[in-house]
Design a protein around this nucleic acid. Structure first.
Length: 886
RNA sequence: GGGCGGAUAGCUCAGUUGGUAGAGCGCUGGUCUUACAAACCAGUGGUCAUCGGUUCGAACCCGGUUCCGCCCACCA
């Protein structure tokens, strides 16, 4: 009995592919079979390590997530098929401000560290009415953290469900959360290591401060926002003289904080002033006038007031000139209590100064500005303009004002004690590390370079928040109860993770907490980036498991988006450099954004992200959505186009139908011997090479497009049609039939594998019918990526162009049918096709197939001079009558 | 102010080292055709933003300009 191809029975399969069912079924199978599991026994060089971005689980899922995570998954799936041992974890970034904000709104609560813990606190989500009518419930720090944990766990479930449905081939055994014990442990170890190596310091200094969240922020979290400001021209006096001058400022409310006046040393206009004291209006404070290169003679009036603190330059002047500190803006953004004529607040007229200041005290920056302008315009009964300090009216100007990226009000410089990681002295080393990494696309490296070169401050890593990783630090209290910040007590590495607010430091009793001679815990938490900059180390279990670390670090690939190069990428590189003297990963792969037709980034806040990811998956299926995502080029923004989802859905349907057809063709097993089949295989082999090269560059989009193009234009619309007659046994002998079916199956098999990284569900479905058993690979996602090995049993065609030529000939015949209004399937009773002699000779070996596809009963191929090479002409054609219905 | 990316058919985008402009969608016409009407066949459609240069030849290389998006910048 001859060996026959195993086939499927056409009628047993559902007419239409049920994607929802397949998503469910295959998701379960993959889990059960452990297809995506990392094998810890395989060596580093066989392993492909992904440093997956842990999404912020603040509850807002949008298509941007789906987009970029699909990119990573396609790359990962391809690597897995290349035989690599995949380490593809998933983490949840749940600590930090976004969660705190979400919890505050969700339960309508406010955290107050002094409040006692309520072990029985049970809260329901707050209704909109409640939020509107009632004041937020005040809860303890510990209760608040518990609520944060509760909400993030729910959010993580939602994310996980989405990721599974989308088909991310994550190894769920490697799941982590940035607030879990291991991450807290590692973040605190990181702190201890940096401290030991001398990269950490804490000091009290002016720091960028968000007055709403009441926390310090780092340079990387600061963004400029355009704002309408106004120059106020204010006349200053000079001590012991009639001379005066006018400064121009956009922040008149800082006048009580004025500690100096400066102008450029070469500025002719102010030579006589240097070394003298200016007298501030209203407050009559004598302040030194000094020259500085940093003053720009072109700006304003060329001479300006130095305040503590209006901006970064003020901080510089304050330091260099050793000026006094007059911090008038408090941590809550309101003007603090103070008295002129005392201490650091001298005044030549304290009584008047205090009268003015009393009106400003307790006010916000904005209302204090309004009030002080009125005072400057008409101080104490005098009419406006009557020798008033304010010269003319404020002149509007556009300015860029620093804001915390998550905040609403401008940042202030407030003097507080903060912890810093020293980076300013390591810029060159960090730049060098950046150059040791391959950036995809390449130009994205520029972002890193520019950021690093322009870095102006060390990394402030302490935050005055609650839901975060605690500093493993306590301070001794002296006899007066004052903390000794210069010699912090560090936690023992073996005791981590610790919470200094509830754990006691080595050698102390809990009773000594906050007692003179005792200790106090560091209440601050780490900047969330302090933890998330450790994701490669979190994956590798750095300092916890040396063998695992050696197998997983540095990682191979870091996928991320470009707006966080200055934070996530930068800090991760810094950490790997400081801890391990190496790069954290070898490749950075940058996805673009999803944008609306107006080129605006899709986001919930701007209201252009209307469809949620689950809705999208319901409407179009996971494969179709993945198809859309994978059409993108790296680093390039992609428009949100509903049409593209439909195209993806169509592709899935076509794969299903083509699979059914090919795998139902019966024939004896036979090698691929026919010229047309060999020419097809030659083209297929070229496609494989092309797709493989694209994936080598992480360009899944190029690979997909090439594969898709081939699938429609060279497989379903053409090769299938050209071999149909032979595969049915209507044409040629058993060998010809076997060759056709063998080539169809090889084509389908290879194309399925090329599509598998992008379309995991439909490819697995079709693969499961026959190929799973035939190849011994139960899952296509564990099957080998197509390569030359797939084609080595097939001899080269006599003419590599004969497949293309057959397509051209068929197209000409189809055009004739179309022109005659005849369907392609109609029988051709007689056909005479002409080509020049050379072309006719080349077509000869595949002419039977062409005629078969055209359903010819009688056919003639003649040669005719004057036709171009490769051109065909239908000399005559008669078509059968339309078959009668019935 | 400095830098990066983009501008190609009505729309979304390809276009490898310079060599006659491509796909999909849309649109028009045709076809129920034994894998698929959730389909197929055929057709329409472009001064490659703009100006100049190099070249036998430029969408591609060089320079200028204009728009769009983004990143960065001490913001008196």
């Amino acid at each position: 009995m001859p060996d026959r191809f195993e086939t499927i029975s056409f009628d047993e399969l559902p007419k239409h592919f049920d994607a929802a069912e397949a998503e469910d079924k295959w998701g379960q199978h993959w889990d059960e079979r452990g297809v995506y599991r990392y094998d810890p026994t395989r060596p580093r060089e066989e392993t492909f390590v992904v440093d997956t971005p842990p999404p912020t689980v603040s509850g807002s899922l949008h298509v941007g997530h789906v987009f970029s995570y699909t990119h990573t998954d396609a790359i990962v799936r391809h690597r897995r098929m290349r035989g690599q041992n995949i380490f593809y974890p998933m983490g949840w970034d749940d600590n930090g401000l976004p969660t705190e904000r979400r919890v505050q709104n969700f339960f309508h609560v406010r955290c107050e560290p002094g409040v006692p813990y309520d072990p029985d606190l049970k809260l329901e989500p707050a209704s909109a009415k409640k939020i509107k009518k009632e004041r937020p419930l005040v809860v303890s720090r510990r209760n608040f953290i518990e609520l944060c944990n509760q909400v993030t766990q729910q959010d993580e479930q939602a994310f996980m469900a989405l990721w599974r449905r989308l088909g991310l081939s994550v190894d769920w055994a490697q799941e982590y959360a940035t607030i879990d014990d291991r991450c807290r442990h590692l973040a605190q170890l990181s702190f201890l290591d940096l401290h030991e190596k001398g990269h950490l310091y804490s000091h009290e200094a002016p720091t960028m401060w968000d007055v709403d969240f009441q926390t310090a922020v780092a340079q990387a979290e600061v963004e400029d926002r355009p704002k309408q400001g106004a120059f106020h021209d204010i006349r200053f006096g000079v001590q012991g003289s009639d001379r005066s001058f006018v400064i121009s400022t956009t922040r008149p409310e800082l006048l009580p904080a004025c500690v100096g006046v400066t102008a450029h040393p070469d500025d002719e206009r102010f030579q006589d002033l240097f070394g003298k004291n200016a007298i501030t209006p209203l407050f009559h404070a004598p302040v030194p006038i000094f020259p500085s290169e940093l003053a720009d003679p072109e700006k304003g009036t060329g001479i300006l007031m130095v305040c503590t603190f209006g901006d970064q330059t003020d901080v510089t002047w304050w330091r260099e000139q050793k000026l006094p500190l007059r911090q008038v803006i408090g941590r809550n953004g309101r003007l603090v209590e103070l008295t002129f004529g005392e201490g650091d607040y001298p005044s030549e007229n304290p009584e008047q100064a205090n009268r003015f200041y009393a009106e400003l005290q307790g006010k916000t920056v904005v209302s204090a500005r309004k009030d002080i302008v009125e005072m400057l315009r008409a101080p104490e009964g005098r009419a406006a303009g009557d020798d008033a300090p304010l010269q003319g009216e404020p002149r509007p100007t556009d300015q860029a004002v620093k804001h915390y990226e998550k905040g609403d009000r401008p940042l202030e410089f407030v003097t507080t004690r903060q912890w810093f990681v020293r980076l300013m002295d390591k810029k060159d080393q960090l730049l060098e590390r950046g150059r040791q990494i391959d950036w995809h696309p390449r130009f994205m490296q520029q972002r890193y370079e520019i950021w690093t070169e322009n870095l102006g401050l060390d990394w402030c890593v302490s935050r005055q928040r609650y839901f975060g990783v605690a500093f493993p630090v306590w301070y001794r209290l002296d006899a007066q109860g004052e903390p000794d910040f210069d010699a912090p007590i560090l936690a023992d590495a073996a005791s981590l993770p610790v919470d200094p607010m509830s754990d006691t430091p080595p050698g102390y009793e809990e009773a000594q907490r906050d007692q003179p001679g005792g200790f106090t815990g560091e209440p601050d938490v780490f900047d969330t980036w302090f933890t998330s900059s450790l994701t490669p180390e979190i994956g590798s279990h750095w300092r916890l498991d040396a063998d695992r670390h050696q197998r997983l670090f540095p990682a191979d690939m870091r996928p991320q988006s470009h707006e966080i190069i200055r934070t996530w990428a930068f800090y991760t590189i810094a950490k790997a450099h400081l801890h391990e003297q190496t790069v954290p990963w070898h490749n950075v792969v940058i996805s673009g954004w999803v944008v609306d037709p107006q080129r605006k980034k899709l986001s919930k806040s701007s209201g252009n992200a209307k469809t949620s990811p689950p809705e999208l998956l319901d409407a179009y299926t996971a494969d179709a959505v993945r198809y859309w995502a994978c059409g993108a080029r790296l680093g390039t923004d992609t428009a949100y186009e509903e049409k593209v989802f439909k195209v993806g859905k169509r592709l899935v349907t076509k794969l299903y139908n083509a699979g059914k057809f090919v795998l139902s063709q019966e024939a004896e097993r036979h090698p691929i011997t026919h010229e047309l089949d060999r020419a097809f295989v030659a083209e297929l082999a070229a496609l494989v090479a092309q797709a493989t090269a694209a994936y080598d560059e992480f360009e899944f989009g190029k690979a997909l497009m090439a594969t898709e193009q081939f699938f429609w234009a060279r497989f379903t619309d053409t090769f299938l049609e050209l071999t149909k007659a032979r595969a049915r046994g209507d044409l040629g002998d058993e060998a010809a039939r076997g060759s056709a079916v063998a080539a169809l199956r090889l084509g389908l098999n290879v194309l399925l594998r090329l599509f598998a990284p992008v379309l995991p569900y439909i490819t697995e479905e079709v693969w499961s019918w026959i190929f799973a058993k035939e190849t011994g690979q139960p899952s296509i996602h564990a099957a080998p990526w197509p390569s030359a090995a797939d084609f080595e049993a097939v001899d080269a065609p006599a003419d590599p162009g004969s497949f293309a030529l057959a397509i051209d000939a068929l197209t000409v015949i189809n055009k004739r049918k179309s022109d005659d209004g005849v369907s392609v399937g109609r029988v051709t009773e007689e056909l005479t096709l002409a080509a020049n002699a050379a072309t006719a000779a080349r077509l000869e070996p595949v002419w039977e197939d062409v005629a078969g596809a055209a359903r010819c009963q009688a056919k003639t191929l003649t040669s005719k001079d004057g036709l171009d090479d490769g051109a065909f002409e239908v000399v005559s054609a008669t078509f059968a009558e339309k078959p009668k219905k019935g």
